[in-house]
Measured scan of single mutants.
Amino acid sequence: KAKLLVLLYAFVATDADTICIGYHANNSTDTVDTILEKNVAVTHSVNLLEDSHNGKLCKLKGIAPLQLGKCNITGWLLGNPECDSLLPARSWSYIVETPNSENGACYPGDLIDYEELREQLSSVSSLERFEIFPKESSWPNHTFNGVTVSCSHRGKSSFYRNLLWLTKKGDSYPKLTNSYVNNKGKEVLVLWGVHHPSSSDEQQSLYSNGNAYVSVASSNYNRRFTPEIAARPKVRDQHGRMNYYWTLLEPGDTIIFEATGNLIAPWYAFALSRGFESGIITSNASMHECNTKCQTPQGAINSNLPFQNIHPVTIGECPKYVRSTKLRMVTGLRNIPSIQYRGLFGAIAGFIEGGWTGMIDGWYGYHHQNEQGSGYAADQKSTQNAINGITNKVNSVIEKMNTQFTAVGKEFNNLEKRMENLNKKVDDGFLDIWTYNAELLVLLENERTLDFHDLNVKNLYEKVKSQLKNNAKEIGNGCFEFYHKCDNECMESVRNGTYDYPKYSEESKLNR
């Protein structure tokens, strides 16, 4: 008799109507990190870190770059004969040098303040090359056809396309004075040089004057150069050297050249137009028929994500570079809930034993079982409120962090190594801060989002509990077992918050 009662009780308990509160689960393989956990499985997430590029040089917003090819900045601007293909260059979106560009200054020497000139050019998007001192009329008392084997072109001695090597005419090199007034309405880049012979005999042979000088002056520039005559090792078949100089001439300003020898005179100059998204990159990537809004030396990035880990040097509207390998923000729920887990921000989770793959029309909802059958029903209101809140948060985070910009490298010469090392340390410090901030932001927001979901499920549970009161009992896994019969209409009233407690209280009292 006792065995019969136990079996009867078990049958009745199993047959009781139930309603459970749960949440969506799926077959997603997404994982995120939080402050407290690593690799948390979630139903949905968004990636904030771009880690792919196309490996190509592309047009930037429809404008092609200027590819210097086998030449570098120095060779292009001075007019190395091997860089003749660059003479027609007028406009570009950015400038590309190759790491091993070999054609710079063909006659050995240095372009002074080269690093600063590169910085200036990094904001130039177009130029006009014009004859600042016409070759045939500007130097009537001097020979202007100086050439050298060091600047050979097609097997013949030649010289820079933008400079003139002035030497004596006959047996004399009379003092020369020439000036140019900038009437271009924009900055003009003027380049010139000073020749330093290897011996007094060479000085006399070329310029006749043993104590020659070169003077260059404008409103913002004033220097006097004296040739340094000295024996030097042979470089590119030359014992002599040429140093090259430049200045930016403001609109309306005048530049005056005065010399008694050794002047490498300007022939062509450049009127410059600035462009905020221009820059110089060093890259071996090849040019393709493609378009982008962000270019790196590795390749083009076409992404609206706020961060990238491809390269710190970028041109155009680019994500911020960070050292992170993963920045994924959760938008959905835990896919593998932890039992009795309390989140960092106070939300209680884990009283549900598992997510439901059968509930596909919402994030949170119900599963019921009664004599009429069983089924899932999503709670659309709480789901939609959660979707709206999380979507707004993700968009806000992306908008705040998605300050796209150009980031170019800084140039230092060989004598500025300590400054370069200090600059690298400062840049590394800023990069570490950006990386830390980005990672911390994602970790915190992921923790908040998961706790937010847990709290929403808990609130749904409490909503049902407050309606049923003692007409049902909690069975410990997020479910309630009714003390009365609850048909589909009754189940719907529980879900929509209109459950009639008094209607079922007498039946429940008897069954309790």
Rank of each mutant, 00 (worst) to 15 (best):
A2C: 10
K3Q: 12
K3N: 07
K3V: 12
L7C: 10
F11T: 01
F11N: 01
V12M: 05
A13W: 10
T14V: 14
D15I: 07
T18K: 13
I21T: 06
G22W: 07
H24M: 11
A25S: 12
N27M: 04
T29K: 07
D30L: 02
T31V: 08
D33L: 07
I35Y: 12
E37P: 00
E37Q: 11
E37S: 13
V40P: 01
V42P: 08
V46S: 01
H53L: 01
H53R: 12
G55C: 02
K56L: 12
C58Q: 15
G69Y: 06
T74F: 04
G75V: 09
L78D: 04
N80A: 09
L86G: 03
L87H: 07
R90E: 14
R90W: 03
S91Y: 13
S93Q: 10
S93H: 05
I95M: 08
I95H: 06
V96I: 15
E97W: 04
P99M: 04
S101M: 06
D110Y: 11
D110W: 01
S123P: 01
S123T: 07
S125H: 08
E128K: 04
F133E: 05
V147Y: 06
T148A: 00
V149T: 04
C151D: 09
C151G: 09
H153E: 10
H153F: 03
H153R: 13
S157L: 15
S157Y: 14
S158N: 07
F159M: 11
F159R: 04
L163I: 15
L163A: 00
W165M: 11
K169Q: 10
S172I: 10
Y173G: 02
K175A: 11
K175C: 03
K175Y: 12
L176R: 01
N178P: 06
N178D: 06
Y180S: 00
N183F: 06
K184Y: 03
E187L: 12
L191G: 02
G193M: 02
H195D: 08
H196S: 12
S199K: 14
L206P: 01
S208M: 13
G210T: 11
Y213K: 11
S219L: 12
R223M: 03
R223K: 13
R224L: 14
P227C: 07
E228Y: 13
I229H: 12
I229L: 14
I229S: 08
A231I: 14
R232I: 08
P233A: 10
V235L: 14
D237R: 04
M242A: 00
Y245M: 07
W246V: 01
W246A: 02
E250S: 13
P251S: 11
P251Q: 14
T254H: 15
T254Q: 13
T254N: 10
T254P: 00
I255N: 03
F257D: 00
T260C: 00
W267G: 11
A269I: 00
F270H: 15
F270L: 10
A271M: 14
A271T: 15
A271H: 05
R274H: 13
I280S: 04
I281K: 05
